[in-house]
Design a protein around this nucleic acid. Structure first.
Lengths: 151, 151
DNA sequence: AACGATTATGCCTCACAACAATTAAAACAG
DNA sequence: CTGTTTTAATTGTTGTGAGGCATAATCGTT
């Protein structure tokens, strides 16, 4: 369904407005898809994002401030999200010897294994992304990169 | 910044995976932009979406079940979101005479005025969408529509 | 009149955002 | 070295929304 029907608004002021509303709408749509897919794994989207960052670092640990920096949602409570992950034994947290203010957060084997299972989702199977051809997928990536460009 | 740098992952399994992750990432990015823009107006994103639906209906009222149907997040507590909007006097709620189970939710003048002010945001000014040309914006819309297509 | 279906709320738990305050340790200035 | 400032992380508090379950009122049908 195209965006006009989807939100029952027949006309937009400009291609930009149309694309913007479409992007916002699709953003919500995607997040909903994701949260449904995540449910069986027992981790929320922010938790998943933190795990991904930690895997990117592995086997080096990350500090909480590094997590915040990478987390997209800069103002978020990274500390509490790490709490949840520790409770699930997906990460460990221990004081860093060099700088005792900071904390080394490290993904565990269990965390790595969980991510490995969840990797299957990332192809986007069953999320509609496969409706696109290869070229269309690349083009979408390019356009999204451009939207996020600093101005 | 392209998505590889953004999430510090150099390689993707396929154009689809890359586009999917990019879409998820950009979805979060957009929602964050939006919530920042919404803050001065004192309404959350779900509240804003409900207001938009009500304006689309205006001057006809909407029922709660109609809101849920249109709300993208079908399982959400539409009732409570309406509560918040009533508290802010942006909508009214009154029992429908024909079917007394249902409730007529109607946007108020104050609500319409608020939306009118917020319309300025919808062009996406300052959100990066203006980085695109007109053709690119249309193409993005087309690709997003395709991603959301039922399969 | 009785039954089931529909519509909306209420209650409860959980997760997260946002902001403020606090603790501890490092860095720095004198 | 001492005192101040800065940085890192945690904690507390409030508000919002998701998700699930239960319930009350009403409608439609039999």
């Amino acid at each position: 369904m195209n965006i006009e029907e989807e939100i029952k608004q027949a006309v937009f002021r400009s291609p930009h407005q149309k694309a913007y509303i479409n992007l916002v709408y699709t953003a919500g749509w995607v997040e909903q898809q994701q949260s449904m897919q995540f449910k069986p794994f027992g981790v929320s989207l922010p938790q998943y994002n933190v795990l991904r960052i930690l895997r990117g670092q592995y086997p080096k640990p990350a500090t909480v401030s590094m997590l915040i920096e990478r987390m997209l949602d800069k103002t978020s409570n990274a500390s509490r999200i790490v709490d949840k992950l520790v409770a699930k034994e997906l990460v460990t947290r221990q004081q860093c010897p060099n700088d005792r203010r900071t904390v080394d957060v490290l993904i565990t084997d269990k965390g790595l294994y969980l991510l490995k299972q969840m990797d299957e989702l990332e192809g986007g199977k069953g999320t509609g992304i496969t409706n696109l051809s290869d070229e269309e997928a690349l083009q979408l990536s390019k356009l999204l990169d451009k939207v996020r460009e600093k101005n």
